[in-house]
Design a binder for these strands. Structure first.
Length: 423
DNA sequence: TCTGGGGTCCTAGGACCC
DNA sequence: TCTGGGGTCCTAGGACCC
């Protein structure tokens, strides 16, 4: 049986989450900002209409915000993560085979539905998700993921499909592809879109009908797969179980630059704490650790970036052990006299925690350390995420490296202290 | 003055081995 | 001066995604 994919995509997801808990925002321009309230990373349709682009720094649009009374929110990942779970919960009613692609997108397997049922079924999915969660979604249906993406885009942008478009075996498929600029095709980014346009390939239809050999030569195997997908031959199957992570990164920009090593050490200890917690949640251990440090990348003068990789004698997810290694690495790459803007840690060479090769020179009591980590995670899970923390992260007080969220909404769904009051 | 964070996959080239 | 031919593994960097 030929596969049929439905891509369910939440509209302006972060903004929609804010609107669920504040109906005054409906119909108004709203944006949600990145960490430190730096850039606009989600925009309502009204905000998009004002010309606010994805990822634009806030300081560049202050006049628009003021003139049009744009509502501005800091990002609230606890809320968005929780809302995402609710959407997924609703979607699982509609297909046993679902791939959670990102926080706001899922693919559903709709193979086996006859054509007039599919659109109807899509409508039912859309209606149910909106009713259960308050989040509006668009649905694109087609023979491949790439075509479903295109159907979704048209479903979202055009009036007629009203949020659900089935392009499977559709006589309108050519028309649809012609409507899509080549840079809006899934898998075509800045670099490829420039190259393709220079070669007269301006929309998805022209890309689909491009010369195989030419595309293979210039875009490799990825380009070939993309052509096939546009032609209705599925090259990216539905992935029901997420494959284990290959790496975990925790990094942050600082609102203010930092010069002192002591403060950077605290910041990095904090990132290791976050990262190791994720590591343990995945039941993984890290075989290597990368620490990096950089000044402001937008400033050419006095720019400095450095990183170092530390191979661990025994793969581990122990927080205190990894803080020590990270501190060693950071001290190595730190250079006095620079003002740093960002630092981070990456855990790589991940392996399942059950497969740790012990080293007879190992001086650490692994069983004890595992028990300690479990207790730490349990307490922080129950009592709040920083009930117990390592002294290396620093004691209370305002820190230069702490991320700023000056426009945050309350955590309506995840924090007992911040439940919505109905008046 | 002010510019996010976390991922994946692919490829080319070097090191090394037989 | 002549100077093979593969193979594997690893890494860095590019390109893309949300």
């Amino acid at each position: 049986m030929l596969p049929v994919f439905a891509l369910v995509d939440c509209n302006n997801f972060y903004v929609s989450c804010e609107r669920v808990f504040n109906s005054k925002l409906l119909g108004k321009p709203v944006i949600v900002l990145s960490n430190n309230d730096g850039c606009a990373i989600a925009r309502s349709d009204e905000a998009k209409a004002l010309g606010i682009k994805m990822g634009v720094p806030v300081f560049q649009i202050l006049n628009i915000i003021k003139a049009h009374k744009v509502h501005v929110y800091s990002s609230n990942y606890a809320l968005y993560g929780d809302m995402s779970q609710r959407v997924i919960q609703a979607l699982t009613q509609f297909s046993p085979n679902i791939e959670i692609y990102s926080i706001d997108e899922s693919f559903l397997d709709l193979s086996g539905f006859s054509s007039h049922n599919r659109t109807e079924y899509g409508r039912k999915i859309k209606y149910t998700v909106e009713k259960w969660t308050g989040i509006p979604v668009s649905i694109g249906i087609a023979e491949t993921k790439t075509l479903a993406k295109i159907a979704n885009r048209i479903a979202k942008k055009s009036k007629k499909p009203n949020g659900v478009l089935d392009l499977t075996a559709s006589p309108y498929q050519d028309k649809a592809l012609e409507l899509i600029d080549v840079e809006d095709v899934w898998g075509i980014g800045r670099s490829y879109s420039r190259f393709l346009k220079e070669n007269g390939i301006k929309n998805a239809l022209q890309l689909r009908d491009a010369n195989d050999w030419f595309i293979k030569k210039r875009m490799g195997i990825v380009g070939t797969r993309l052509l096939h997908e546009l032609r209705g031959i599925s090259r990216y199957p539905l992935e029901r179980c997420p494959s284990p992570k290959r790496g975990i990164t925790v990094s942050r920009s600082f609102k203010q630059t930092i010069g002192a090593l002591a403060e950077l050490l605290e910041a990095v200890a904090g990132y290791v704490s976050i990262g190791t917690k994720k590591l343990r949640k995945e039941h993984s251990v890290a075989g290597a650790l990368i620490v990096f440090l950089m000044t402001n990348r937008f400033k050419k003068e006095r720019y400095y970036y450095n990183m170092t990789t530390i191979r661990l004698p025994v793969p581990t997810s122990d927080t205190s052990e990894l803080i020590q290694y990270a501190h060693r690495g950071l001290t190595e790459i730190y250079k006095k006299g620079y003002l740093y803007k960002k630092a981070g840690v990456m855990f790589t060479d991940l392996a399942p925690e059950t497969q740790v090769q012990t080293n007879f020179l190992d001086s650490i009591d692994r069983i004890h350390s595992n028990r300690l980590m479990k207790a730490l995670d349990n307490i922080n899970e129950k009592m709040g995420s920083s009930t117990l923390k390592y002294a290396a992260v620093g004691l209370s007080g305002k820190k230069k490296w702490q991320t700023v969220f000056n426009h945050r909404s309350r955590s309506y769904t995840t924090n007992w202290n911040q439940l919505l009051e109905v008046s």
